[in-house]
Structures are given as structure tokens and as C-alpha cells.
Design a protein around this nucleic acid. Structure first.
Ligand SMILES: NC(=O)c1ccc[n+]([C@@H]2O[C@H](COP(=O)([O-])OP(=O)(O)OC[C@H]3O[C@@H](n4cnc5c(N)ncnc54)[C@H](O)[C@@H]3O)[C@@H](O)[C@H]2O)c1
Ligand SMILES: NC(=O)c1ccc[n+]([C@@H]2O[C@H](COP(=O)([O-])OP(=O)(O)OC[C@H]3O[C@@H](n4cnc5c(N)ncnc54)[C@H](O)[C@@H]3O)[C@@H](O)[C@H]2O)c1
Lengths: 227, 227
DNA sequence: TATTTGATGTGAAACAAATCACAAAATATG
DNA sequence: CATATTTTGTGATTTGTTTCACATCAAATA
């Protein structure tokens, strides 16, 4: 009945995030306008790609004049629904969960962890701005705040079971830090973040690079690791 | 002089990690053999893809007989240099750094954080299995342990400066958790992990899914979010 | 206002990745 | 031992993504 839905975020979307981060920085520096090649230079992609990506997401500038940064950012905010607040829950207040609950960038981007949950009564006593609830109150809180997205930071062994609970409680998207492939119904979005794999990837590429040094191979590597 | 090298790990490599995780689990369960469709079922890709990926990484099974799990895992260990130990350093023992330093999966996969560093003398007093050094000892330790890979968990504002220090000390690969694009020489591999983006991606896809429900759009979404 | 300049936006072309289709090989079966 | 069956491995094909090339438009200039 349950099926695997293991997703990889599209590269063009990742690049849009990149552009946005860059634009936000430029805006802070007082810059008002950009051209596709400005963004390209700053993010390491080609100007063509910037424009194609914008085209894909329906973002348009004005010919000759480039793009108005505020305008561009506003359009992106709309695309990503960043003008509204997003309430999130976090399950598992262990090492990782605790760190994530303290991460201020989430709030800065309007993503509020409004509640955290843990099976361990001891964890429920953590003094923190965000309340730590017992798992029995999961559905109640998710319903009350109309929460659709959860961060899962429980041990591998409990991940599937907690994921099932989340889906039953109405969660539609999960950022999963446990190194397991969750089985969820097809209408639930899973984004697996596997930090071991991220580290291993780097080790893999570093080895590849050191094995056969020289520019020829650098180029091959670059092909392998496209932006 | 410095240039941006912002990489995205190739999807085929990500899938190999997926297969390996699956194989490890099957092995633990006492299974000895797999077919491409076994792996495919478990990981949500197609059997063709599994075989093509194996082909790309030079892994071969035997016709009709499928693949011997131990053999397969050994081949993968070789590809990923997992038979040897990998010494790593971690910079920034704040919320995230502390969590990462306690993550046992790194050790299980032969990736040992042998030293951590922090600018804050208070952090250097953290009682932990892994020593916390002052930044002044960075080069000394990196040289002593012949370390090539670092995890960067310092604030956004210091990330570039610390990255420069790491590169000067001989680091060739960095997993960067700060939401900035580091400028490094082309022979240094950067893997940016941006948890805000990961969360936002999920919000984006959940919205997309809810906006226009129904199976037709589910299919479109799947195209957007390929395995 | 006409002309030049410079950047966008987008089809077309080139390239890359995934799927298909089937020959080849290993095993099972009669 | 010949034949049927099953699964791999890989060219061929399709599908998707990036790069190229240039028409188009907006602004600057004369
Ligand atoms: N620590 C890290 O840096 C790190 C890095 C990457 C991935 N991860 C992954 O994140 C997850 C958490 O890692 P961690 O190091 O924080 O582990 P941890 O053991 O420190 O924390 C896990 C927390 O989950 C709680 N928990 C256990 N079962 C539960 C359940 N059924 N319902 C609710 N809560 C439950 C525990 O009480 C604990 O507080 C693991 O899957 C791990 O593999 C951790
Ligand atoms: N907390 C999280 O869950 C989280 C999640 C994703 C990304 N991040 C990113 O990871 C980084 C660290 O986040 P955090 O929450 O752990 O922050 P933090 O402030 O808790 O920790 C940062 C640590 O880096 C140390 N530091 C500062 N400047 C330094 C320097 N020049 N050299 C060495 N050490 C230095 C500080 O003393 C501190 O201990 C940030 O870039 C953040 O954006 C954090």
C-alpha cells in the first residue's frame, strides 16, 4: 500500500535558491539592479543558464535594463510562497534536532518551528524557546497550527514508524535526516538529507582528483560535478 | 585569483549510495543475493537504471545469477575508498558542529573526525571524545594526520576566511554548512549543504501539490522531482 | 527622432541522462 | 544434453537539459 517516493530536488530549483541568496546579499549591499552575467559571475553558472532558469520559473526582466533586484526578489518570494509564514514541526530533540531547533536562519526565512516532539520525557524538559511535547500530542498540535511540513530527526530505527504517524496526522512534506528510505503515500513529499553521503561524496571526489592530477582530469571531474 | 567551484553531486553517484544502504540492510537481514529489480523495488528506481549505474561504475554481476551482496558491497567499498580510514577535521563547535561531532554514523563508515577547532576558548573546554583545538593549531594537526577533508560549521560571516585557512593548510575537500558560496582554487572540492534550501524545497513542492490536486498533476510533479 | 548599443528571451542545436529492447550468458528443466 | 528460462549488459532510442545564436526590445546617444 505504501510506496517509496524518494525525491531529488531539481537542479534548476537549486540554482534559483542560489540566485536568491546572491540577490539578497547584493540588496543588503545597496545594489539595485543586476544583469544575468552579474548573477552568473557570482554563482558560477553561465548567463544563459540564469536567463533560461528565469524563463522556466516565469521570471522576466526588461531588455537592456537587466533586472530590478527588489522586483526579482519579490517574484521569487511569490514563487516560493515566502510572503506567508510557514509553520513546521520537528520530531526528535536529540543532538541534531536540538541544533536545528536553534537555527535562526529558518525563522529569518519565515519558517517557524512552532513545536518539537520527543518520545523521551527527559528531552521534554529542555528549556528552549520552542516547546518540546510528548508524541501523544502530535496530531493535536499539527491540527491546531495546520502544519503541513515536518523535520524528522529521530534514530534510523524509529524513522518509518514516526513517518507513518506524521502522515496519519496530515503532514504532506518531510525533510528526513535519518538514513532510511521512508515509505509514504505518493502525495507526500520526502526530501532525504543524508550527511554521511554528503561527506563521502567529497571524499570520493577528492580521491578522484588526487589519483590522477593534472588539468585534463580536472576537466573530466568538472563534467562529473556540474553545477 | 580565487574562483567559485560550487558543485552538485551527480545523481548516479547519489543512487549508488542508495543501493549501498539498501544492500547493507539486506546483508544484515541475512540475504545473500540480489537482482537488479530487487534493488530497484527497494530504492524506487527502475531495474534498467540500476544496471546502467552499475555499468558506469564498472560493477558487474553474473547473468541470470544476479549479484552477490557481499561482492557488490566490497566493490562499492573499493570505489569509495571505504576500506581505508578517513581522517576529517571539523571547524566550528557551535550548535551544529557539536551535533555532527557526536554523530556515530561517520565513524561507522570509517570517517573519523580526529580533531575539531573553534575560535571561542569556551568551546575549547567542551568535554568530548574528540579534542577541541584553537584555530592556531589548525595547520599542525592537519599536517600531522595528513587530513584532506574538512567539515565547515562556522557562521556565515567567517566561512570564507576559515575556508581560506583550510585551503592554505592543504585541505582539498570541504563540506560547507554555511549558506555562502566559498571561493576556492579549482582543485578544491566544495559540497554545499544548505538546510534552509532543503526545507524550502519541500515547502515549495508541497504547495505545488496542494495548489492543483489530482493525479494528473502528481505525475507532473514526479517529472519535476525525478529520482 | 533616427541610430547605435547592449541585454533579454527563446527557438534550434548540442549534449547528457534515462529508458527501451534485445543479444548474450548462466542456470534450470525435461 | 538440448532446450527453455531468466537476468545481465549495452547499443539504440527517447527524453531532458544546457549551450548557442540571434531576433527583439529598451535605453542611450547623436
Ligand atoms: N547527530 C548528527 O549530527 C546527525 C547528522 C546526520 C544525520 N543524523 C540523523 O538524525 C537522526 C537523529 O540523530 P541524533 O544524533 O540527533 O540522534 P539522538 O539519539 O541524539 O536523537 C534522537 C532523538 O529522537 C528521540 N526519539 C527516539 N525515538 C523516537 C520516537 N519514536 N518518537 C519521537 N522521538 C524519538 C530520542 O529520544 C532522541 O531525543 C538519526 O537518524 C541520525 O542518523 C544525525
Ligand atoms: N544550527 C543549525 O542547525 C544549522 C543548520 C544549518 C546550517 N547551519 C550553519 O552552520 C553554521 C554554524 O551554525 P551554528 O548554529 O552551529 O552556529 P553557532 O554560532 O552555534 O556556532 C558557530 C561556531 O563557530 C565558531 N566560530 C566562529 N568564528 C570562527 C572562526 N573564525 N574560526 C573558528 N571557529 C569560529 C563559534 O565560536 C561557534 O562555536 C552556520 O553557518 C549556520 O548557518 C546551522
Amino acid at each position: 500500500m505504501k510506496q517509496i517516493t524518494k525525491y531529488v530536488i531539481k537542479n534548476s530549483l537549486k540554482r534559483i535558491f542560489l540566485y536568491r541568496a546572491c540577490l539578497a546579499r547584493l540588496k543588503m549591499m545597496g545594489v539595485e539592479k543586476v544583469f544575468s552575467y552579474t548573477l552568473a559571475n557570482d554563482t558560477g553558472v553561465t548567463p544563459d543558464q540564469v536567463r533560461k532558469d528565469f524563463s522556466e520559473f516565469g521570471i522576466r526582466g526588461n531588455k537592456r535594463g537587466g533586472y530590478e533586484i527588489s522586483d526579482l526578489l519579490e517574484k521569487m518570494e511569490n514563487i516560493f510562497h515566502r510572503n506567508k509564514d510557514h509553520n513546521i514541526v520537528l520530531i526528535g530533540m536529540g543532538n541534531l534536532g536540538l541544533a536545528l531547533s536553534k537555527y535562526s536562519k529558518f525563522v529569518q526565512r519565515n519558517m517557524n518551528i512552532v513545536a518539537t516532539f520527543d518520545i523521551d520525557p527527559f528531552k521534554q524538559k529542555i528549556r528552549s524557546d520552542i516547546p518540546v511535547y510528548s508524541m501523544s500530542r502530535l496530531k493535536e498540535i499539527i491540527d491546531r497550527f495546520r502544519i503541513k511540513v515536518a523535520i524528522l530527526a529521530v534514530p534510523e530505527i524509529s524513522a518509518q514508524q514516526v513517518s507513518d504517524e506524521l502522515v496519519r496526522a496530515g503532514i504532506k512534506g518531510i525533510v528526513n535526516f535519518a538514513p532510511v528510505l521512508l515509505k509514504v503515500p505518493p502525495e507526500v513529499v520526502i526530501n532525504n538529507v543524508n550527511l554521511c553521503d554528503e561527506l563521502e561524496s567529497v571524499i570520493y571526489y577528492v580521491h578522484k582528483l588526487m589519483q590522477d592530477e593534472g588539468l585534463k582530469n580536472l576537466e573530466i571531474l568538472y563534467k562529473d560535478m556540474k553545477y
